[in-house]
Deep mutational scan, measured.
Amino acid sequence: QIFVKTLTGKTITLEVEPSDTIENVKAKIQDKEGIPPDQQRLIFAGKQLEDGRTLSDYNIQKESTLHLVL
C-alpha cells in the first residue's frame, strides 16, 4: 500500500502493486475521493509523475507517500 497526502492534509491509503501505472493510481484516487484523474497531479520526491509510467519506474515502494496537487 502507499499513502497519498492531499493539500488539505488528508491522507488516503491505496492498495497498489509496483506494476501499477500512475494512471491506474489516479483512477483509484477517483474511486475513493471522486476527483477526476485529469485534475490530479501526483508528486513524489519533488517530481511530477507521468501517467504512462509505473510506480516501480519511480522507485515508489510500499509505505511511500505521494503528494496530490489539484
Rank of each mutant, 00 (worst) to 15 (best):
G34W: 03
P18D: 09
V16R: 02
H67P: 01
E63G: 14
L68I: 05
I29R: 00
G46M: 05
G46L: 04
V25Y: 01
L42Y: 03
I22M: 04
G9S: 04
I2L: 09
K5H: 09
L42C: 01
V4D: 01
L49G: 01
S56C: 08
F44D: 02
Q30E: 10
I35S: 04
G9A: 04
D31H: 10
Q30N: 09
K32D: 03
E23Y: 15
T8C: 15
K28G: 03
I43F: 14
P36H: 12
K5T: 12
T13I: 13
F3V: 05
R53N: 10
S64G: 07
G46C: 10
V69R: 08
I60P: 01
E23T: 08
D31S: 12
Y58R: 01
K5L: 12
Y58G: 01
L68Y: 02
Q39K: 09
T11E: 06
R41H: 13
E33Y: 07
P37L: 13
F3G: 02
E33L: 13
S19V: 06
A27Q: 13
I43E: 11
V4H: 01
I29A: 02
H67M: 13
S56A: 10
L42N: 00
P36L: 07
V25A: 02
T8V: 07
P37C: 10
K28N: 03
K10F: 09
D20N: 07
L42W: 01
E50R: 07
V4E: 01
K28T: 03
G52A: 12
K62N: 12
K10T: 08
K28C: 05
P36A: 10
S19T: 13
E17D: 13
E33M: 13
K10I: 11
S56H: 11
H67Y: 15
G34D: 06
T11W: 07
E33G: 04
L70S: 12
T54R: 09
I2Y: 05
E23A: 14
R53I: 06
I12Q: 02
A45M: 15
L55N: 00
K5A: 08
D51R: 04
Q1R: 15
V69I: 12
I12A: 02
E33F: 09
L7T: 15
G9I: 02
P36G: 05
R41E: 12
T21V: 04
V25C: 05
K47T: 14
L70N: 10
T13F: 07
V4K: 00
L42K: 00
I22T: 05
R41L: 13
L66W: 02
F44V: 03
Q30C: 14
Q48C: 15
Q39P: 03
Q39V: 10
K47E: 13
L70P: 09
L70V: 12
K32F: 07
G34K: 06
T6E: 04
I29E: 00
V4A: 03
V4S: 00
T65S: 05
K5W: 07
S19K: 08
F44T: 02
D51Q: 05
P36C: 08
K28P: 00
L42S: 00
K47P: 01
K47A: 10
R53L: 13
T11K: 07
K32Q: 11
D57R: 03
S56G: 11
T65D: 03
E23D: 08
T6V: 11
Q40R: 02
A27D: 08
K26I: 03
I29P: 00
G52D: 13
E15F: 14
Q61Y: 11
G46I: 02
K10N: 08
R53Q: 08
K10H: 12
L66M: 05
Q61M: 11
V69M: 11
Q40C: 09
R53A: 08
G9F: 05
L68F: 03
T8M: 12
G52R: 09
Q40F: 14
P37E: 07
S56P: 03
T13P: 06
S19H: 14
K28Q: 09
E50K: 07
Q39G: 06
D20F: 07
T21I: 04
T6Y: 11
V25D: 00
I22F: 03
I60S: 01
R53P: 05
K47H: 11
K62P: 12
L7F: 13
L55F: 03
L68T: 01
E33C: 12
Q1N: 09
I12S: 02
D31L: 14
P37H: 10
L49S: 00
V16L: 06
S56N: 10
Q48Y: 14
T6I: 13
K26L: 04
K47D: 07
T21W: 05
I60K: 01
I43C: 13
Q1M: 14
T21M: 07
K5Y: 09
N24Q: 15
T65M: 09
T54I: 06
Q39S: 08
Q61H: 11
E50A: 08
N24K: 13
Y58H: 04
D51H: 06
Q48L: 11
T11N: 06
I22R: 00
L14R: 00
D31G: 10
E63R: 07
T13M: 11
N59F: 07
L55C: 06
E50Y: 07
K10V: 07
V25G: 00
T65I: 14
L49T: 03
T11M: 13
E33H: 07
L66K: 01
E15W: 13
I35N: 03
T54S: 08
L49N: 00
K32I: 14
L14T: 02
Q61V: 11
G52C: 11
I60M: 03
L68G: 01
K47G: 06
E23W: 14
I29Y: 02
G34H: 07
L66S: 01
Q39T: 09
I2M: 05
I35F: 13
N59L: 07
S64W: 05
G46D: 07
Q61G: 14
I60G: 01
V16Q: 02
K26Q: 02
S64C: 10
A45S: 10
E50G: 04
K28H: 04
I29S: 01
E15K: 11
S64V: 08
K5P: 01
D51A: 06
F44A: 03
F44P: 00
A27I: 15
T13S: 10
G9H: 05
N24M: 14
Q1E: 08
H67L: 12
Q30D: 06
L7H: 14
Q1S: 11
G52I: 08
L55A: 02
K26E: 00
D38Q: 11
V25M: 05
K32H: 10
Q48E: 15
E17K: 15
L7R: 09
S64R: 03
T8L: 10
Q48A: 09
V16Y: 15
Y58L: 05
I35T: 08
Q40E: 02
Q40D: 02
F44S: 03
I29H: 00
A45W: 08
I35G: 03
E50S: 07
S56K: 09
T13W: 07
T8F: 11
H67E: 14
G46N: 07
R41S: 15
D20M: 10
T13N: 06
L55I: 09
G46T: 04
L7C: 15
L66A: 02
S64L: 04
K26G: 01
H67I: 14
Q48F: 11
S64Y: 08
R53H: 12
I35V: 08
Q30V: 04
K10M: 10
T13L: 10
K26C: 02
S56R: 12
K5E: 09
V69Y: 14
I60N: 01
G52M: 09
T6H: 06
G52E: 12
I12Y: 06
H67D: 12
N24W: 10
E63M: 13
I35W: 13
I29L: 08
